[in-house]
Computed example of a mutant assay.
Amino acid sequence: MAAATTSEFGEHGHLAVLDPEFAPFIDFINSQPPSSKTDLGLRRKEFEDGLMAASMKIYAVGLPRESQYNIKDEEIDVAGPPAGKIRVRTLVPTSSEVGKTYPLYVWFHGGGWVVGNVELDDYLLRQLCVEFQMYIASVEYRLAPEHRTPIPQDDCYAGIKWAVENQALLSADVKKGLFIGGMLAGGHLTAVLAQRAQDDPWFEGRPITGQILQIPGLCHPEAVPEEYKASLCSFKQNEFAPILPGEDVGWFYEQLGGSPTSPDVSPLLHPVQAGLPPTVLQICGLDPWRDEALLYSKILEKEGVKTRVHIYPGVPHGFHYFSPNITAAKRWEREYREGLRWILDGAPEV
């Protein structure tokens, strides 16, 4: 890993100094064989056997009783080209109260737009469904490179609208809250869709009331404008970071396709309006995507958007899947829930 304390890495360079509690996990992570970049089937299986299995093991511990929620997979039509179908996994708390409704949370999984599915976060979402008494729709969008930009973005947008249009059937009520969120690539998709919704008359009277961006990628490395270069140092600093090195970031963007400066690829560059919903950001210090998320938070705050930012120094992208019991990982879980509560409570001033 690159040195983390010199001024060449900007005002946030100190955030990449390795967390001593995470240090014991570095050798294990670095000992894993590199993921395939030529065999997509193999890469997806590696993801399922690795990160997805780790997630299910971690969150199985707090899994609520099956009698506390209902789960169902829906298949919905999405436009193209090419048109197709995607899966939306729905979770709703059980209640003895006839006609009870819940706020709606639409979630997008991670995986670099190339791997992953609704199983990745399934056990955690079951917990949140019951704990916060909210309806959750988890969208399994079509993956790149078979389906490049703007298909993943369009699929997720269709997932939001489908959930809202079917809220009566789903025991949801967007008047109680309509918020979106995602981790990894899902965080990127969340930022893109929140921006799209600002200009979409469809959302009049039913606006998105919050967004949760967990370790999101917000700017293609080839699209960084001159004015931002001095602020975006983490891609260089964390070029050889564990879990998500810079080489992998570039490969994922290559699979996603689209113009690097497009709002669908680099939402950081899209003009921000004050109408964006209250935003929670969770950012890792050893992540190549660190500085663009920090810059985005400043842009939002300047525009008057209510924003909560949580930073985890010295740990890499997705660290909590590998080290769920260290202090930073426990803080990640706590602050995620605090962010959800903040949005559900109407995002009071912080």
Score class of each variant (00 low, 15 high):
Y105F: 12
H147K: 06
T307K: 09
D173C: 05
A230I: 12
A16L: 03
Q255K: 04
K161I: 08
M52A: 13
K236A: 15
Q167I: 03
E204C: 05
A60M: 03
P152C: 07
A241I: 14
P207A: 05
L120T: 15
S231A: 15
I58L: 02
L170Q: 13
L15K: 09
K45M: 13
N325E: 03
D121Y: 12
T5H: 01
L143F: 00
Q127L: 11
Q195W: 05
T209I: 06
L256K: 03
H14M: 01
K57I: 08
S55A: 10
R142P: 06
W202V: 11
R89M: 10
M1N: 02
A144Y: 00
V78Y: 00
V98N: 02
I76R: 00
K37N: 12
S138Q: 13
S323K: 04
G246S: 10
V350F: 13
L244V: 14
E165C: 07
G318W: 02
R43I: 07
N30W: 09
A197D: 11
D199T: 10
V139T: 14
Y157K: 05
D200S: 00
R290I: 08
M1C: 03
A60G: 11
D155P: 11
N70C: 01
V350E: 15
R148Y: 05
T327Y: 04
K176V: 02
T261G: 09
K306G: 11
C129K: 05
A3D: 07
F203R: 05
R142V: 08
F252S: 00
A158P: 07
R206I: 07
G181Y: 02
E222A: 15
P278W: 04
M56I: 08
A172F: 00
R87P: 13
I299T: 15
P348E: 01
S35Q: 12
S297V: 11
H310R: 14
D287R: 11
Y228T: 11
P150H: 02
L184D: 14
C233P: 07
V114L: 00
A223N: 06
V280G: 08
L42D: 09
